[in-house]
Design a protein around this nucleic acid. Structure first.
Lengths: 189, 189
DNA sequence: GATCGCATGTAAGTGGTTACATGATTTA
DNA sequence: TAAATCATGTAACCACTTACATGCGATC
């Protein structure tokens, strides 16, 4: 009854199959675009997981002759799979253990030069800006192509959350750089 | 010359030793307070890492008779250790692979009820609020006790970054809950 | 004499990435 | 014919957590 414990990685993949049948390759691409700001999957986990979902009766594998390239293996979620997935959705999220190498280095800022700390923060701000504009770009294309999809409103919520986080971070970076620069200016006088 | 590659976990510990000599137990406590919003360490990694730092000449182990309880092993960073640590600080941060089970479940919101999605977001907002007030509390005590520490300004920057992130998230949660509630209200009419 | 806080440690397992291997088809 | 894209897969390795084992000293 109560299935063996599955990782969120498995449910992420199961959920993508619930939207529509996909191959491992398709999943990888989808994760890298629409889920990119909050999730990741490598082939090394995708393919074994798909096999396991099939073995456990949560998905079904089907060989498909593709028009071009090698044959594809498309997986479709089963009724059991959908049920387990919906059950997982109801469970409370388990908090991710925190891990920010950026903040770690910033914390140890006193062991390096102000210039080095400034570079650290500027680089981080730069990365945040890049992520922000990438999300904006993805948002534009997906909005055009899939705005009628029943999942679209929820996907858009994740987008807005991501964008707001980025903006908050960008603001903090800018303010902090200015703060450090002015402090540095004072010392140099 | 170029040391074997070390994980950020090792450098986190090395950095804490650079601030002042500590035991594994001390490190665990410090990580759980001042670093808690962006880092974590378990005993299962701390003790092996300390041994390794000693073996590699980056730290030195010393047995200390504690006033009460069993004997402590206090580690002190060496000159080599400090040099490697400072070098690591200069290296660009490698981006953490994204992983938010919360956003993942939100993304799949169409496979569950609006009530369930609302609960998801409210719980998340609640967790964020708790973290925010915990940080505020820690900030108050540390500000009183260690505001003269040379590392204090940098620690405070990490705090402000964390607090700003939480506030941004809290705002997004509130707005999103309202948005979903109003949409739900329309449908029910 | 039980239990809590202090303190160190390990073994087994998990969860995951990287790098590699393979090979078809298309495009330059 | 070289490179890019499509597509599947595995083996070796790694980082890390969990759970457990141990035991002192103080307090209740």
């Amino acid at each position: 009854m109560t299935g063996i414990s599955r990782s969120s990685k498995e449910f992420a993949i199961l959920g993508l199959l619930a939207i529509s049948p996909k191959s491992g390759y398709d999943i990888k691409k989808e994760v890298e675009t629409v889920l990119s700001h909050f999730w990741n999957e490598s082939y090394g986990s995708i393919y074994p997981i798909l096999r396991r979902l099939d073995k456990d009766g949560l998905a079904e594998r089907e060989a498909v002759d593709s028009a071009k390239g090698p044959k594809r293996y498309v997986y479709t979620v089963t009724a059991d799979g959908l049920a387990e997935f919906e059950d997982w959705l109801q469970q409370p999220v388990q908090p991710t253990p925190p891990r920010s190498e950026f903040l770690l280095k910033l914390f140890f800022g006193r062991f390096t030069s102000t210039a080095s700390v400034l570079k650290l923060i500027r680089d981080y701000g730069e990365g945040t800006r890049r992520m922000h504009s990438m999300l904006t770009r993805i948002h534009a294309t997906v909005s055009q192509e899939e705005s009628s999809d029943p999942g679209f409103p929820f996907w858009e919520l994740t987008m807005q959350c991501g964008l707001k986080s980025m903006e908050s971070l960008m603001g903090w970076c800018e303010a902090t750089v200015q703060h450090l620069e002015s402090r540095n200016g004072e010392e140099s006088q």
